[in-house]
Every structure is written in structure tokens, then in C-alpha cells.
Design a binder for these strands. Structure first.
Length: 840
RNA sequence: GCGAGCGUGCUGAAAUUGGUAAACAGACAGGACUUAAAAUCCUGCGGGUGGUAACACCCUUGUGGGUUCAAGUCCCACCGCUCGCACCA
């Protein structure tokens, strides 16, 4: 009898697939394409449970559609630029390149052992010059089309990593990687004009029918449209004016001051003013820390502006800390009666508080906007309801040319400059005559130097003795290279296009291939990329379209966001995390041995696996000990993909036990067959046959809808039934063959091996996907629930599609178990083949 | 503060358009086999009342109301948890 030897089996089939190029998609095919993509990994050196889960989900999908007859592309690559390589290089005295390559090699071999149906010939790595050469070309295209520009700006500066961070890399005022408090620093930076597409990126979310609502909502909030008006306030004794943005133009007559950000252009007038400079620095510091106190402070400029409709009213102008430069115009009009922040500010600086809603004087600040609210103290708006007033004033603003109605977005242009070595060089040079020159395509790639000194503070490319010195290729004038490199989110914003023609040397991608394969049909990855990566990618395809590449405008048709892999956590009394593996429990308390003594622990809640909490489990070890198929099956059986998965070694052991049992049962017992010759069946056989066909149907639906956990439950029901029911040999062979074909997409080595050993020639996946035999699935008998007043009283076994009257006769009849007095029945509710309810 | 989602056994979870709550697993307990253990197999496993018993009846999806013949599912209020954004004008 065969014993389940996962090592032998998995090696056998993995090398077979590679040898036969099983997962290379066809070319020039009439078949419908299917592009399955999981978010590519950063090559940290080791795969983690999150990867295992992500790639298992993707692989089940990919194999399912392949067996269903699609031409499937399922590629893999490496998001291989980025800071950890530099940090590791410093620590271990190796080059970032060598470190990265070693990691890729190791992780690739780990991924291979999972048995993924990947076309490895398409493998790409973003740090390879074969990749970033094309990326530099895309940058030049953006440059030509005014989609990239350079500007001085305050940036988020991470003092630990010594780099600039994008807004979304700042979490609670701290660097997303280092955790250091982020500072403001002024630098000249490259920006991508993502804001040019704000409107489109927002409204096209509606096209993404198969994206989770949650992700769409997050993007919507991130883009953050507000509709309102930009209103001009003329400075007294000057021709200049200040534009402010508001979403409540109807409150204009409640305005009592103007508040500006300390970074507002007008502030340049005060750059010699020591008092102001001090105030400004204080504000910037408060904004850095994102103080929760929300204390308001102001600086009186001494300037006044005219009210656009009441020329005789002059409003004082303040700088203040609560107006931000990066929203709207960095300037607002203060309407203290109807805005909490303005109210606090006005109270502090004794400014007028003009209530402009009837009967609201007693509950200021009144910030609601209700249909029934009526304006007062508002000139031509008096007596109008709030929404009507809004329309009127917008018209008046336009008529009087004191402003325009407009929308503002929260989304800012994307700063892509990074002062780091291990990233894609920006193909720009600064000539000695002061000109900024974009390189020509034939000068690409701009390669990174092999010998950076990473131990000095600051930018290694800047510090390099010769790299940045170059000559203008046209004029021969001396020039300095751009020493910033690109944010790695730039790398991952187009890799899905490169996969379509990964080995093309003279173009980033082949348009024909892209038109065939794009968009990605199913894109699978962590929800943590809901905003950053996914929004940038959506922007990229639009930007490329604008540059003349005629590609589909949404990159990912369907998005699956998988949950995290969690594990229990333990802590000592002095807050040290302890590995769960070392913990033992006794009398509902948890302990760890330390020499001869025991230390009591408290159990924390289950949290995402992380090094810092010491609750990680190495998937590679699990795979070698229990097998890839065991790991794969476990990863998808316990929770639906979008939810968090609770790691459990007991779960792994039980899964392995199950596979052992099936393997032992089937080896040397099964004759693999795909046909079943119909004959007269015994009751047992009929029941089993019917159930098997039902499972085919429901399992396929479940897989299609990413209900992998219930799909597995159905397979287990089927195997339980097949094990405990005595059936004929031909039925046994047929049903178990179906079982193997269904489970193949989850545990391919296991199913293939059993099938091959039982007589199948060729691959399981070359058989068509099983189709359920509907004629036999037709159940002739059915259970109907009998209820009295909606409460279940019992179940009756009757013929399918039985009429209401017939059923009632049986139930109310003398022989029936149900003691129902027919005369008292007020109403009978009957749902065919489901339920009959007597209301008494 | 704003927005979204979620609360079901000891645990992970299932439950078509409202129609048999707890499928499928895990943990645990008991039993068989064994000198013993492991492995394997079998049984039980939301709560309560009555009965020697097979069984019968009642309750049960965070809490309280409502709609309905019928509510885990729909509506209202409250409590709790998770996530995203956060001085966004």
C-alpha cells in the first residue's frame, strides 16, 4: 500500500511541469485569454505566510481557469529596488545588488516548492537594467508630455532613513518604515501630475464593478473631491487680491476675517519679519506633530481685504496654524458662527461672530446644513433656504466676477524623488549653462554605479566621486546628472504591462501583446495597497494613454484583497514578546520555561504575523515538513480569502492527516476514469452519484466566487460520503476520479500523482473541467419543512414539485403525525419544494 | 470628529432572493485496538426542563424594540470591536 510521500511527489511533478513548459501560455490562439496576477513580492530573502496565502489563492484561480479552457497567463517578478537592500548592504558589507540577487534566488526556490503554475520565462526584476531602462523611457515620455515637473516644496523628511516620503508613506506623523517623527524640509523635487487625472480617477471608480466597495470608497476618500467656489477678496490699498476656496459660499455674509496658511505666497512679504518667522516655525512644527490639542494660534498681518459684496466692510487678514497650504488655496474666509475652527479662533482673538441663520443665535457654532435652515443678515440672501441661497450666491459670484464655482481635490501630485542609491536613476542632466536636459532614448539606460559609498550620510549618488559628472551629448558642455532616484511605487505602476512582453529589448511593451492580455482579469493582493499602489497604477495607464499608448484605461478588472495571516501573541509581565511555540499552558494559564523556573505569560490577542511580535511561522519549514499541498489546502480552507486567517498548527496537522487518509485509501485501489456508463443504480449508488454531481456544480460556483472555504467543505462532504457508503467499484472509480479532478486546482501534486498512479495518462488539467450530469442530479424526492405559525414542527419527505393541495391533504390527514385542527387554520403559506406554514 | 465594515457554539466558520441556525473543520471528552503510547477507527460536543430510557418540549445568532405567516438576514435605537481618513475650508 502506498504511503503519502509529499517530498517525492512534489519534486516529481514540479520538475515535470518545468520540463514540459506546462504553464507557458499559448501564442496565436483563438482561446479566450485570462490574466491572473498576484502583487509581486519584495525580495526580502524569505517568503512569509502572507506570500503563501496570496500565491495559493492566485494559483487556485489560475489553475481553475486553465482547466476551464482559457489561455492563462500567470507571471511572477520582483519588486527589487528599495531601501532594505541599502540597509542590509551597510550592515553586512555586501552590495545591494548582490544582496538582492541572492534573496531573489532563495525566494524563487521557495516559491518553486509551493508548486505554483507560473510561467517563469516571464520573470522580471525591477532592479535589472533590462527593466529600468524602459522605465526611464517612460519617464522621458512623461517629461515630453508635461506629466512630470520639478518644484521646490516642503517635503516629508524622514530623519532616520534620510529620505523624502510621500504623504501616504507618513502614518500618524511618522515614517511608515522607520517610525521616526517626520520633519518638514524644503527640497527641489520631481513630481508626477497625478492631480491632472483627479476627476477621471474618481469618476471611473464606477467602472470597477468587480472591485471591493471598501477599496473604491478608500480611493474616493483619498482623492477627496469638494465642490464649492473660489472667491476673490481684494486687498485694501492694493490691486492684489487673495483667492479663497469654500464649500459654503452661502455663508459669505457671515465672514469676519481671512485666514491664511503660513506658507501662503503672501508670507514672502514677511520674510524679513523675525516675529513672523518665529510664528511660522511654530506653526510648521505643530503641523508636523499633528497635535491633537487642535489649539489655534494666529498672527495679525495688519492687512485688510474688502468683502466682495459689501465694499465698506473690511476684514482683517491673519496667518494661522489651522489653514494648510496643501489644500484649496491655503486661504479661507473665517465664518465663526458656522464653523467650529473659525469659532475657536474668533473667540481667542475677539473677532466678530455673525450668525446668518435664523433662530440659531443660541447654539453657535451651528455647523449643520438642513433643508429648513433660512438665511438672515445676508443681504440678498435673506429669507432664502440654505440650498437655494447656495445657488443664488454662486450665480452672483459669477455675475459680479468676484469668483468662480469650482471643485478642489485632496489628491496631490505625486512626489517621486528619493535621495537614495538603490532605485531607478532619473534620466535628466543639468547642463553648466543652467539648462535642464532630458536624455535621448539612445542614451538609456542610465546605469547605477557599481561602487557607491553607502556609509556616508545623505544621497550616495550625490556623494559618488565621478558618477554624476557627465557631458551634454549634443553640445558637449559639462553637465551634472540628476542624483535623485525614483520612488519604488513608480516601478510597480507598470510591471503588469511589462509581463505581456517581458523580454522585449527595444520597447517597454509590445502594444499587440498588451491589447491581447490587458486588463489583468484577476488581481490579488493585500488590502494595504488599496490606495498607494492601485491608485498609482490606475494613474499610470491614463498617463501612458495621454502619451499616445493606446491601452485599456483600467489596469485591473477584478480585485481580490486578501486578509492577513494572524497568530496568537504572548507577553511577559515586563512586556517582552514570546514566541507562541515556546509557550505551554496549564490550568488556563500560560508559561514559558526559563532554566528551571517558569515565567507566567499573558496571552494577547491574535495579530498579524510580524517579527516584532515574535509570532511568525516560516512557511518554508511547514512546506518541507508537511508538504506544499497540505500548506495550500490549509491556507484556503479555514477562512474566506478577504478575511484574516488564523494560523493553526493543529489545522496543518489535521489537513495532513486528511491527505494521508485519502492517499492510503486510493493508492492501488483506484482506476482513474472520466466516463461513467449509465446503468440501473442501487439506491446507494444513485445517492452517491447524485451527490457527486451536485458537488461538481456547487464547487465550481464557489471557486468562481472565491468562496474557497465552502468549496473545500463540499469536497470533504463528498469524501466523507464516499468513504462511509458501500458502492459498486465503477461508481467508486468514477466519483473518486471526479474528486481528484476537482481538488487538483488546490493540491495539484497530490491529485496528479494519484491520478497518474491510477492509470491516467497525461495531466489532470488537460481533461476538461467536470460537468455535472443534470439529468441524474434531478432529485425526485425532496424535504419540505412543516411549520405552525412560522415555527418548525417537522419535515416531510415528498415528491418534487408536489402541489399545495396534495401536500395539505397528507399533513392534515388522519395518518399524519401533525395534530392540526383543520377548522382552526386561518391561512396556509406554501413555498414549493421548501416550506409549508399553517397559521393558526 | 467623519466615513465604512463587523458582532453566530470553547475556536475557525456555514446558512440562495427573509424560509430546517451551527454545514465543514479545529480543540476537548469518552470508547475500541494496544502491555503501554503513538497512529487509526467509533461516539459525543449551544443552553435548559421533564423522563430509567429511546424521546419530548422550550430557549438560543451583542442588547432592546419594530416589520412579517416567517428575521442571523430587513428597519430603528443602543453597546462593543476592527479598518480607513482626520484642523481638507
Amino acid at each position: 500500500m502506498g504511503k503519502y510521500n509529499h517530498k517525492r511527489i512534489e519534486q516529481r511533478w514540479q520538475s515535470y511541469w518545468i520540463e514540459k513548459n506546462t504553464y507557458k501560455p499559448e501564442t496565436n490562439t483563438e482561446k479566450k485569454k485570462f490574466y491572473v496576477l498576484e502583487m509581486f513580492p519584495y525580495p526580502s530573502g524569505q517568503i512569509h505566510m502572507g506570500h503563501l496565502r496570496n500565491y495559493t489563492i492566485g494559483d487556485v484561480t489560475s489553475r481553475f481557469y486553465k482547466v476551464k479552457g482559457y489561455n492563462v497567463m500567470h507571471p511572477m517578478g520582483w519588486d527589487s529596488f528599495g531601501m532594505p537592500a541599502e540597509n542590509a548592504a551597510i550592515e553586512n558589507n555586501v552590495s545591494p545588488e548582490a544582496w538582492t540577487e541572492k534573496n531573489i534566488k532563495n525566494m524563487k526556490s521557495q516559491l518553486m516548492k509551493i508548486g505554483l503554475s507560473i510561467d517563469w520565462d516571464r520573470e522580471i526584476s525591477t532592479c535589472s537594467k533590462n527593466y529600468y531602462k524602459h522605465q526611464q523611457k517612460l519617464f522621458l515620455e512623461f517629461f515630453k508630455n508635461d506629466l512630470v515637473y520639478k518644484k521646490d516644496s516642503f517635503v516629508n523628511w524622514d530623519p532616520v532613513d534620510k529620505t523624502v516620503l510621500a504623504n501616504e508613506q507618513v502614518i500618524d506623523g511618522k515614517g511608515w518604515r522607520s517610525g521616526a517623527i517626520v520633519e518638514k524640509k524644503k527640497l527641489s523635487q520631481w513630481f508626477l501630475r497625478i492631480s491632472r487625472f483627479s476627476n477621471e480617477l474618481l469618476s471611473d471608480l464606477e467602472l470597477l464593478e468587480s472591485w471591493p466597495d471598501k477599496v473604491k470608497l478608500m480611493q474616493k476618500n483619498w482623492i477627496g473631491i469638494s465642490n464649492g467656489a473660489e472667491i476673490k477678496f481684494k486687498l485694501v490699498n492694493s490691486q492684489k487680491s487673495i483667492n479663497v476656496f469654500t464649500t459654503r459660499p452661502e455663508t459669505l455674509f457671515g465672514a469676519s476675517f481671512l485666514a491664511l496658511s503660513v506658507e501662503h505666497p503672501i508670507s514672502s512679504k514677511f520674510k524679513e519679519n523675525k516675529e513672523f518667522i518665529e510664528f511660522r516655525n511654530q506653526c510648521l512644527k505643530m503641523q508636523e506633530v499633528r497635535e491633537s490639542s487642535q489649539q489655534k494660534i494666529g498672527y495679525k498681518t495688519g492687512l485688510f481685504v474688502e468683502h466682495p459684496f459689501l465694499m465698506n466692510i473690511k476684514l482683517p487678514v491673519y496667518f494661522c496654524n489651522y489653514v494648510l497650504i496643501n489644500y484649496g488655496n491655503g486661504a479661507i474666509f473665517g465664518c465663526p458662527a458656522h464653523d467650529e475652527r473659525d469659532y475657536d479662533f474668533a473667540k481667542k482673538y475677539n473677532l466678530k461672530i455673525n450668525c446668518i441663520f435664523e433662530k440659531k443665535e443660541s447654539d453657535l457654532p451651528y455647523c449643520d446644513m438642513k433643508e429648513e435652515d433660512i438665511l438672515t443678515n445676508s443681504n440678498f440672501l435673506n429669507g432664502k433656504r440654505v440650498f437655494e441661497a447656495q445657488k443664488i450666491i454662486l450665480e452672483e459670484i459669477m455675475n459680479k466676477k468676484v469668483g468662480v464655482s469650482c471643485s478642489k481635490f485632496r489628491l496631490k501630485d505625486w512626489g517621486v524623488s528619493r535621495q537614495r542609491y538603490w532605485g531607478c536613476p532619473i534620466p535628466i542632466i543639468y547642463r553648466e549653462d543652467g539648462k535642464v536636459i532630458a536624455l535621448e532614448e539612445n542614451q538609456l539606460p542610465v546605469k547605477l554605479p557599481k561602487d557607491p559609498n553607502l556609509n556616508l550620510p545623505g544621497n550616495p549618488l550625490e556623494n559618488h566621486k565621478s558618477w554624476k559628472r557627465t557631458k551634454c551629448p549634443k553640445t558637449g558642455l559639462k553637465a551634472i546628472r540628476e542624483t535623485d532616484t525614483l520612488d519604488t511605487f513608480f516601478d510597480s505602476s507598470w510591471y503588469f504591462l511589462r509581463f505581456c512582453s517581458p523580454n522585449l529589448t527595444d520597447e517597454p511593451f509590445n502594444l499587440g501583446e498588451v491589447l491581447y492580455w490587458m486588463p489583468v482579469d484577476h488581481y490579488i493582493g493585500g488590502v494595504e495597497h488599496a490606495i498607494l499602489h492601485l491608485l498609482y497604477s490606475r494613474f499610470f495607464v491614463r498617463a501612458l494613454k495621454l502619451c499616445g499608448y493606446d491601452i485599456p484605461k483600467e489596469p485591473f478588472s477584478k480585485l481580490i484583497t486578501q486578509g492577513m495571516v494572524c497568530h496568537e501573541t504572548f507577553k511577559t509581565k515586563d512586556n517582552k514578546w514570546i514566541e507562541p511555540e515556546k509557550v505551554f499552558s496549564k490550568n488556563n494559564q500560560f508559561w514559558i520555561k526559563s532554566g528551571d523556573t517558569k515565567i507566567e505569560l499573558t496571552r494577547g490577542r491574535s495579530e498579524k504575523m510580524s517579527k516584532s511580535k515574535k509570532n511568525i511561522v516560516d512557511p518554508d519549514r511547514i512546506i518541507s515538513e508537511y508538504g506544499a499541498d497540505t500548506a495550500r489546502l490549509f491556507m484556503i480552507s479555514d477562512s474566506p480569502p478577504e478575511r484574516d486567517l488564523e494560523w493553526s498548527i493543529d489545522g496543518i496537522k489535521a489537513t495532513r492527516k486528511y491527505l494521508d487518509k485519502i492517499y492510503t485509501l486510493l493508492s492501488n485501489n483506484l482506476e482513474f476514469t472520466i466516463n461513467y456508463e449509465k446503468r440501473k443504480l442501487s439506491e446507494q449508488d444513485k445517492m452517491v452519484y447524485t451527490f457527486t454531481n451536485k458537488v461538481i456544480e456547487e464547487y465550481s460556483e464557489d471557486i468562481k466566487n472565491y468562496r474557497f472555504n465552502t468549496a473545500v467543505a463540499k469536497l470533504r462532504e463528498l469524501s466523507n460520503l464516499l468513504i462511509k457508503t458501500k458502492i459498486e467499484k465503477d461508481m467508486f472509480d468514477f466519483c473518486w476520479s471526479i474528486f481528484l479532478r476537482l481538488i487538483y486546482i488546490i493540491i495539484p501534486h497530490f491529485a496528479q500523482d494519484l491520478a497518474t498512479n491510477s492509470g491516467l495518462e497525461g495531466l489532470v488539467e488537460d481533461l476538461d473541467w467536470p460537468v455535472s450530469d443534470k439529468t441524474h442530479v434531478e432529485n425526485k424526492k425532496i424535504n419540505i419543512v412543516v411549520q405552525i405559525n412560522g415555527k418548525k414542527k417537522g419535515v416531510v419527505d415528498v415528491k418534487k414539485d408536489l402541489k399545495k393541495e396534495t401536500l395539505m391533504k397528507t399533513i392534515l390527514g388522519k395518518e399524519s403525525d401533525y395534530d392540526i385542527d383543520e377548522t382552526k387554520v386561518k391561512k396556509v403559506i406554501f413555498i414549493p419544494n421548501k416550506i409549508i406554514n399553517f397559521v393558526i
